[in-house]
Design a protein around this nucleic acid. Sequence first.
DNA 1: TAATATATTTAGACACATCTAAATATATAT
DNA 2: ATATATATTTAGATGTGTCTAAATATATTA
Lengths: 221, 221
Amino acid sequence: MCTTAEENYLKAIFKLSYEQKNGVTTSSLAEHLATKASSVTDMVQKLADKELVNYIKYQGVTLTPKGEKIAIQLIRKHRLWELFLFQNLGFKWDEIHEIAEELEHIKSDLLVERLDQFLNYPLKDPHGDPIPDQEGNFPKNNSIPLSRLNTGTKGIVVGVNDKSSSFLIYLVKIGIQLGTEIEILEWHEFDHSVDVRINALTLIHLSYQSAQNILMSEKST
Amino acid sequence: MCTTAEENYLKAIFKLSYEQKNGVTTSSLAEHLATKASSVTDMVQKLADKELVNYIKYQGVTLTPKGEKIAIQLIRKHRLWELFLFQNLGFKWDEIHEIAEELEHIKSDLLVERLDQFLNYPLKDPHGDPIPDQEGNFPKNNSIPLSRLNTGTKGIVVGVNDKSSSFLIYLVKIGIQLGTEIEILEWHEFDHSVDVRINALTLIHLSYQSAQNILMSEKST
DNA sequence: TAATATATTTAGACACATCTAAATATATAT
DNA sequence: ATATATATTTAGATGTGTCTAAATATATTA
Ligand SMILES: [Mn+2]
Ligand SMILES: [Mn+2]
Ligand SMILES: [Mn+2]
Ligand SMILES: [Mn+2]
């Protein structure tokens, strides 16, 4: 069994290992978990003792299969709870992450399966992120950042990279949520910002950072 | 804010203060929480520093209004979660307590209110226990232990005192759950056990301990 | 390659929650 | 009332998870 702190470390290592292919660094973990590098070293050594991570001093850390399994189950629980909060309890897009951050640590395999069943075995959470199944398989999602769409193309918003409240609230304010149709009107070379049309109606301007964090369906038109 | 450990102590003090009117004793708390008397003393002193309990050495402990409010909110959360697990996720009578013991510590007032709304503002949990409202008021429940019913009277099972898995599983096995009608047939003087008829059909024998732990509606016939 | 900057680990400390063993207070019995 | 038993508190220790400051390794730059 893992403590809540250990679980949060495993989840963080899993997330960061997509950006850092040869070992997650101590400092990036410290930043992600809002803690100190020395605390990370301590914990990572403990996780290595438990054979949940591979760790060589100064070389960063990767998950063992055992550690990865736990991380994926946590993501599964997190996203199922988020969907429950969103769909059944009427929480907003930007209110669910923090609560799910606590709920994901409730220890009961049966609870997760029943929740999955109650929600009708969903494939995506309210942010458009894929929900892994019992075995840890992620459903395919072939989305690309809005920043990679060409002028003139249209697409549907299917997710976001940045799940911070501030970004999500901003998106709602400018009229963007899951399912919104967006047409690329014009890219601006100098700052990579873009003018778009929302739902064939409203014209708005998106910064490059926003464009990178909005995920669109690949339209094979 | 309280830690999970502090919250569990407050809840335990609240429960035990019905049996011990002038201060909950250190040893009874230790027993209830499956810990040592010395640990209880430590924690109780900390809770006194936080002004959540009144504590005088060797005199036992009582809740302050502030401490009582927290305890009642915990009971509210615990019972709402139990009902959710029972009604919506299909858990059995005896499976819900342990999971709710974890869920009750999730920190979000909005979550509790939304859950209450989702469950349609219920008055009782799956064990027949009253669910306090937002202000901490318990709905009246005028139940009496089966052990106090006279020969010939009938009643409906509306709750249980003992919520242990073993007792609940036993009740299900002998055909007793919430809503079951029980008729008192004959009391046995020597061991205070009783013969009863269940749902106007099955005859069974109950020990005095069982009779004390089954709560019946007061029938004003 | 040597000097400097940055990243990481180690050492030592602290708060929390628990324990065992010893000291002390309260209750009970002679 | 004194002795004995029981309940409670204190003292000292442990494990977890965190921190700051110091030591050491790796990366960068001259
Ligand atoms: Mn978490
Ligand atoms: Mn999400
Ligand atoms: Mn609890
Ligand atoms: Mn209950």
